[in-house]
């Protein structure tokens, strides 16, 4: 949902993330490449057209505006992460 809330277990919430809730460093890769495949129930299409800067902004928006984690990804971190995404 636009406010980051999910729908039961179907669409996991993006609120209430903490530093241990999942591997936060995967977030740039998930945004770019999506999640799941044809057979999985939970799927997200990749947003391949987004630039590194845009992905970086989204990650920081989710971490800070939706969760107040006071964590910030630098553009260098995002670029580095995106280089190592496994398909």
């Amino acid at each position: 949902m636009p406010d980051g809330s999910g729908v039961n277990e179907l669409y996991p919430s993006l609120n209430n993330l903490d530093q241990n809730s999942f591997n936060l460093s995967e977030m740039p890769c998930i945004i770019r490449n999506g999640l799941g495949n044809e057979l999985s129930l939970i799927q997200m299409s990749g947003l391949e057209h987004l630039s590194e800067v845009e992905i970086n902004n989204i990650v920081n928006y989710v971490l800070n505006d939706m969760n107040n984690l006071s964590l910030e990804f630098t553009i260098q971190q995002t670029e580095e992460t995106l280089k190592d995404c496994s398909e």
Partner: peptide, 16 residues
């Protein structure tokens, strides 16, 4: 449809 990336999650939330 299950793999619907656009409006379905919003609609399902309202159906819920």
């Amino acid at each position: 449809f299950i793999s619907c990336p656009s409006i379905c999650p919003l609609v399902k939330k309202q159906m819920l």
